[in-house]
């Protein structure tokens, strides 16, 4: 397998925080338009891996390639421009802004208006703004929040805030979407809706890497699963195999190996 066939290739990366080896020589790769689950007990290093992939901090060693190109030295916002989108484990919305405005910020890399442009409002930029609003409303409609477009984002119930964050991440038109525990705090109905949304996102040609504790959701939606435990990859394979993997059971149930 050449890494170019993969949208994302993670090549033996490691990351330590002080004495904690949060990620320990982890490698795996994502094929285009797949849904991959990243699971593991709390503190396994899943969020750290997301932060490495999105360029928040660099790995101590190893390499991450996105569409065959190393991401090392690229700023977070540059990677978004290249097609990397994410949501946060602890929802991080722009709380003073409306639901619609949150998605509009998500469209930042897909629009171009600067300070001068905003003052003079040329026809091109007026059109850009109108298109952006239409697109934002479409995305809100996609996650089912179109009716709440003008509400303050922090007024939304928690589950809907997660959906808004998803819409905001989709706005940048990512090729790869990283979702960090998107179902945490959602009720069963909301979790089902989320599962359908993720399927539908993949149908739009977006590759998904999903960190999730909800096993039913993970097993149902993912093509492949990667299991982390204490920074190490302990298993990788299709959901069925993972479910019966002894090392995985041990990691989750805390049995001695």
């Amino acid at each position: 397998m050449t890494s170019n066939a993969h949208l994302l290739a993670i090549d033996s990366i490691s990351k330590a925080f002080g004495g904690v080896q949060a990620i320990d020589t982890v490698s795996f790769a994502l094929s285009p338009e797949s849904i991959t689950g990243l699971i593991g007990p709390n503190g396994a290093g899943k969020t750290t891996l997301f932060n490495l992939v999105t360029g928040i901090f660099p790995p101590d060693s190893g390499d991450i390639r996105f569409r065959g190109e190393s991401i090392s030295g690229k700023a977070v916002h540059e990677l978004v421009g290249m097609g990397l989108g994410r949501t946060f484990q602890n929802v991080e919305l722009f709380s003073s802004m409306s639901v619609l405005e949150n998605v509009l910020v998500g469209l930042h890399t897909r629009t171009s208006c600067g300070i001068i442009g905003s003052v003079f409002r040329t026809p091109r930029l007026v059109k850009e703004e109108r298109r952006a609003r239409e697109r934002a409303l479409e995305l809100l409609d996609f996650v089912g929040l179109a009716d709440l477009a003008h509400q303050r984002s922090s007024d939304l119930p928690f589950g809907w805030q997660r959906l808004l964050e998803l819409a905001r991440a989709l706005a940048s038109k990512p090729d790869l979407l990283l979702l960090d525990e998107p179902a945490a705090g959602l009720n069963m109905g909301e979790t089902d809706t989320l599962g359908e949304l993720i399927e539908s996102i993949r149908k739009h040609g977006i590759t998904v890497l999903l960190v999730e504790h909800d096993m039913a959701l993970t097993m149902k939606t993912c093509d492949r699963i990667v299991v982390l435990d204490r920074g190490k990859k302990i298993a990788e394979g299709p959901p069925r195999t993972i479910q019966s993997d002894e090392a995985v059971m041990a990691a989750y149930l805390g049995k001695p190996k």
Binding site: E92, F94, E101, C113, S118
Partner: peptide, 30 residues
């Protein structure tokens, strides 16, 4: 003109930075 800036893509990016600088970067704001 300040109102125009605030109500534009630039103003939204600025307010986003105010609300959460890391989140703003994570959605593509330089």
């Amino acid at each position: 003109i300040c109102r125009r800036i605030i109500d534009s893509r630039v103003g939204r990016a600025l307010r986003a930075i105010h609300d959460g600088e890391h989140a703003a970067a994570a959605v593509g704001v330089d």
